[in-house]
Design a protein around this nucleic acid. Structure first.
Lengths: 193, 193
DNA sequence: CGATTCTTTGAAAACAGTCAATCTGTGTGG
DNA sequence: CCACACAGATTGACTGTTTTCAAAGAATCG
């Protein structure tokens, strides 16, 4: 189970993981299994935990005054599911995170995370790289959202993230892109011409 | 000039800055003055530098096929102007960064930045906090963009970032929000009722 | 003042959202 | 194995919002 995480760290850090490091990681990250639709975090809670996804798929979303869900993030294997805002600011989360498929996670609290970053240099490196990539991805998505019409946004997304297109139903992709499922359906029809 | 940066570090780190640290920072960060409209980074270049804004205001934007500018970020005092994507991936930038007002910067290369993060623990802390906040802000903005209609998005923005409203003209704010200047003008008229 | 930049307005067109109905595929329980 | 329920996708008609284009009105600066 923890092997996936070791691999992930190797891919993102130049520094090595010693046997003791691995033991510490195994002792700290708790395996957890979520069934489809089960919550990992609910709006209003404080998201003290982060989960590394070993197998499965999850979504993070807000719910507006009309009860409509807006997908903020989609996660699959080798992604971290967490609400960074809530965890770092200690504020109630404005988002829900739940399992879209049955999912195997490795869970840590934020405090444990900080501890591991201190004690395991390679882990510190990994979280830095991860933060950097998350930020870059977020900026790209933002740029696409403010710059492009719905159609082009979908094309870009489908191009850059085919795994998500295969894995999640259209209405979630639509919400992720900030459009309705009907609009996405029409865009796709057009695109086939 | 460098005082502003020391203050910034104090505010974001728990660890202290020694006299040697300060000397190192002064030796590394180069003061630079940009006149209004002058480029800090141009599309296609590799953005190896980051600039800490001591005084002034800047903008980061992409230009689409039709020649329309899309504001990706607005920066003022105590913000960092840089294209993280280009700097970390060593890829040509898709953005331009220029001075909106005459601006005083403290400039470092990415390599120097990494070196300082290593040598000065408080600086390492600061960049971590900064990355975290940037990511959180970016996620919030994304959520607002995909969840809200133009009107609500503007209200939220005006509420949370009054400094920007005062400092930048409406057409830049509109672009930042992903709408046209005409639409923003009409929204504001409505809002006054 | 004259030039430039910024903001507002109007009218038409393009775009996206809403609501309601239908269609499709999948899986579950009887 | 079939029938039914359920989740997802599509379609049509309509409404509402946003963009586009063009023009004119403020505001600011050298």
């Amino acid at each position: 189970m923890h092997e996936a995480l070791f691999t992930y760290i190797h891919q993102h850090a130049t520094l090595p993981l010693t046997a003791e490091h691995k033991a510490l990681i195994e002792a700290t990250f708790q395996p957890k299994r979520l069934r489809k639709k089960q919550y990992f975090l609910q709006e209003g809670d404080i998201g003290k935990q982060a989960g590394f996804i070993v197998k499965g798929a999850m979504r993070q979303y807000s719910v507006d005054d009309k009860g409509v869900e807006h997908i903020v993030n989609l996660f699959i294997e080798n992604w971290w599911a967490s609400d960074r805002e809530s965890a770092t600011m200690h504020t109630p989360s404005r988002y829900n995170i739940d399992a879209w498929e049955d999912t195997d996670l490795l869970v840590v609290t934020r405090a444990e995370m900080l501890e591991l970053m201190e004690k395991i240099p390679a882990f510190g490196q990994t979280t830095r790289v991860m933060d950097e990539r998350n930020f870059i991805a977020s900026q790209r998505r933002l740029n696409s959202t403010i710059s492009n019409a719905a159609e082009k946004r979908y094309e870009e997304f489908a191009e850059n993230h085919p795994q998500f297109i295969e894995r999640f139903p259209q209405h979630l992709i639509a919400s992720f892109l900030g459009i309705t499922k009907e609009t996405l359906s029409r865009i796709r029809k057009q695109a086939m011409r």
